[in-house]
C-alpha cells in the first residue's frame, strides 16, 4: 500500500510547553517522535491518557508549534520547529475532528456542517449534493434546522465528523472523537466512520486510548509510550474488511493483536 513518497511523514518531533513562572524547565511532552502514513491508509495510534496524543495532533494540524522536528506532507516540508508561522490545517489539506464536537452553538446543525465550505467559497451545487449524501449516510437528514443543544451526543459527533468530510481534505486527523459517548452509540459511530471511509478512501490518523477501537478501525496501529511520547511498536492489522464491529472478538486474529498491543502499552 505504501507508495514511494508517504502522504504524511513526521521526523524527530519534540515538544515542551513554556515553563510556568518559578519553574526552571518544563518536561518534554513528545521526544524524538517519528512515523509516516501512506496514502489512503487508516492509521490508529493508541497510548495511555496524558501521553501527549492531542498535542501531537495539534502540532500536525498546526494549531500548535513544535520545539524540534519536521513534518512532510506529500514530501513537501510543511513544518519546522520554532519561529515559522503556523498555518492551521495547511491550507485545508488537513481536517481535524477533535474530542469535543466543537459545533458552534449559535448555528443550526446544517449551518455548522456547511460553514467550512462557505468560508472556503466552495459551497456550490456539487458540494450541496455531497453534504446531502453525507447527512443521509449518517441518518442526520431531517435534523438540519436543529441547534446543537437540541441534538443527542451521537448526532453531534456525526455532525462534527461530516463537517470535516464535507470539504474533503486529503488527510483527516481524529482525536479520540468517540470517547465521550456510550458504548452502543460508539460502535454505531465507528461503523459509520468505516462506511464513510470506504465510500471515498482518505488518509486518516486516528488517536485513541482504547486498544480495541484502535485495532478495529486501523490498517496499522502505532503504540505510544507514556510521556514523553515515543513510538514503541508498529502493528499491521490484517483483519479483512468490511469488519463486523459488533463482534470484535470473533474477528480472526483480533485476540492475538490485542494481547501484544496490551503488552506493548505496559
Amino acid at each position: 500500500m505504501s507508495s514511494a513518497v508517504p502522504m504524511l511523514e513526521v521526523k524527530g518531533l519534540a515538544k515542551r510547553f513554556p515553563p510556568r513562572s518559578g519553574q526552571a524547565e518544563s518536561p518534554w511532552i513528545l521526544a524524538d517522535l517519528s512515523f509516516h502514513v501512506a496514502d489512503q491508509e487508516f492509521l490508529t495510534m493508541v497510548g495511555p491518557s496524558g501521553a501527549g496524543k492531542s498535542t501531537l495532533l495539534n502540532i500536525i494540524a498546526q494549531v500548535d508549534g513544535a520545539n524540534e522536528g519536521k513534518i512532510f506532507f506529500r514530501g513537501e516540508l510543511i513544518e519546522t520547529a520554532n519561529g515559522s508561522a503556523l498555518h492551521p490545517g495547511w491550507n485545508c489539506q488537513f481536517g481535524y475532528v477533535t474530542q469535543d464536537d466543537n459545533l458552534l452553538p449559535w448555528r443550526t446543525m446544517i449551518d455548522n456542517v456547511t460553514l467550512p465550505l462557505k468560508l472556503q467559497g466552495r459551497f456550490d451545487a456539487a458540494a450541496r449534493k455531497r453534504v446531502d449524501e453525507l447527512l443521509h449516510a449518517t441518518h442526520l437528514t431531517g435534523f438540519e434546522r436543529y441547534y446543537p443543544h437540541e441534538l443527542s451526543g451521537g448526532m453531534r459527533k456525526r455532525a462534527s465528523l461530516i463537517r470535516t468530510l464535507a470539504y474533503d481534505p486529503p488527510i483527516i486527523l481524529m482525536d479520540e472523537p468517540f470517547s465521550a459517548v456510550d458504548a452502543q452509540t460508539r460502535t454505531q459511530l465507528q461503523q459509520d466512520l468505516l462506511r464513510l471511509w470506504n465510500l471515498g478512501r482518505k488518509t486518516i490518523v486516528f488517536v485513541t486510548h482504547d486498544i480495541a477501537e484502535a485495532i478495529a478501525l486501523g490498517d496499522r496501529v502505532l503504540v505510544l509510550s507514556k510521556s514523553p511520547a515515543k513510538i514503541v511498536a508498529d502493528h499491521r492489522i490484517d483483519i479483512k474488511r468490511p469488519r463486523d464491529l459488533g463482534n470484535l472478538y470473533k474477528l480472526e486474529g483480533f485476540g492475538d493483536i490485542f494481547e501484544s498491543v496490551r503488552r506493548d502499552l505496559q
Binding site: 495539534n58 494549531v63 492551521p88 490545517g89 485545508c92 477533535t98 467550512p116 468560508l119 470535516t164
Partner: peptide, 18 residues
C-alpha cells in the same frame, strides 16, 4: 470565546476576519 472553536475554524480555513 472558546479557543477550541477558534482552532477548529482555523484548521478548516477560516481567516482572522472569518
Amino acid at each position: 470565546v472558546n479557543s477550541q472553536y477558534v482552532n477548529v475554524a482555523r484548521v478548516f480555513g477560516a481567516t482572522e476576519r472569518d
